[in-house]
Amino acid sequence: MKLTRRQTVIAGLSVVGVATLPLPSFAANVPLVGLPDEFTRGASVGSGNIILNTPEIAENGNTVPIHVSAPGAVEIRIYAMGNPVPGVAAVTFGPLAAAQSASTRVRLAGTQDVVAIAKMQDGNFISTINQVKVTIGGCGG
């Protein structure tokens, strides 16, 4: 099997994630977005009808507008792989959601890949990946 760039990046994420995982200081019952592997649980991730809109260049990493859309998805998770905590958001759609899409604004620590993984109704996972160039990072420190 020939590895695409997307599959290579996703496979490499778990190693990076474990190395940089900080100890949570907040209450243990708070839900977490976690890492891509915790979402897919080893299932293969294909490509498909999932759209992630990000700016090509973000001047300010503190507020980067993003839009994600995956018709037929049950849940979409977004990860910023270059952030100290890669998880960004986990969006679950209910029966009254008109479209499996959402927009928000995120912090990016620097130029990096933003990954969106969608869980479809049949249990399959599809993903897409976008690189965002960040001029000024948004994680302080």
Partner: peptide, 14 residues
Amino acid sequence: QSIIDIILAPAIST
């Protein structure tokens, strides 16, 4: 009836 349920991480902006 649920429309949307989002878990937020610290990477969501102010």
